[in-house]
Amino acid sequence: MNTSQTDALLDVRNLKVEVTTKAGSFFPVNDHSFSVKSGETLGIVGESGSGKSMTAMSLMRLLPKHAAKIRGGSVKLDGRELLTLSEKEMRKVRGADISMILQDPQTSLNPAFTVGDQIKEALKLHAPGGRKTLRERTIDALRRVKVAAPEHRVNSYPGEMSGGMRQRVVGAIAISCRPKVIIADEPTTSLDVTVQAQYLRLLKELQDETGMAILFITHDFGIVANLCHRVIVMYAGRIVESGPVAKIFAKPAHPYTEALISAVPSLHGQKERLTTIPGQPPAPTDIVVGCPFAPRCQYADARCHSEAPPTVAADQSGDHTTSCWRAVEA
């Protein structure tokens, strides 16, 4: 698993985030290590509350100020450590080197400013230029996300646009400064299915064009199969499996991944009841002894309940890993 480190664009090692609440403190991001290369799409999959968005926000260093703190690890972008940058230096990274597409286009654009102004703001901060150049680049960003009549649309307010169009604008903001990495946090969850497909195609095209890396956060294994090269599966703040998409679909090594994949409804084959995973993930503040998935796992034995499994290779190649006692034994 160390082979990819040298050519990794974004390299995350042993990242740990602690959240403190009145009910106690816990680690929604617990010892995460993963990396992504230029032009690659990494899927981050898990149920809500599994720590996906926390992971994304900690890469941006935009965790809620008082409640969450990064407790260790390293995040390197192009070999440069991000966790030790000053806030001022980090602001220059945000939007320029790493940008992000948020989940809900209905609320992620500022209703009081035109979409043009909102795109221009990012450009002004990271690639200043004259009025005319900025306007041209703003229009160009809209054109690249395939917004029709971008010369007119720059003057529109978000309230005058449809959800799919707004999400394109959010995309235009994200790509406007040509970042190396884009984090897409469930960008299509609130879009119609047809609009969803268009948006995913658009992301793919933009990636082909610019060679940016995409971190795609989702709970939908269907999208992962379509879009991602590699995937990490998260459960209760831990990475339980990671590897190339093809391998994970063909032979999931962790029972949780297996259950997730079988929960994706298929268009073909018999109409049957939708599969669900029985039980619930542990509450964040629960103290988990052993494997966090054990209470819901059909293969769990005594050791699973008492001892946390180590991360091991799931096959000989070394690019597929899992945290499961069954893989250790195999």
Partner: peptide
């Protein structure tokens, strides 16, 4: 608390501008 405040920060906007431009205007 709004998402567009988060997006402004994601863009690299300074905290001062987040408060006095993006938040106060709304």
């Amino acid at each position: 608390d709004a998402e567009y405040i988060k997006l402004a920060r994601v863009k690299g906007v300074s905290e001062w501008a987040v408060v006095f431009k993006h938040a106060l205007r709304n």
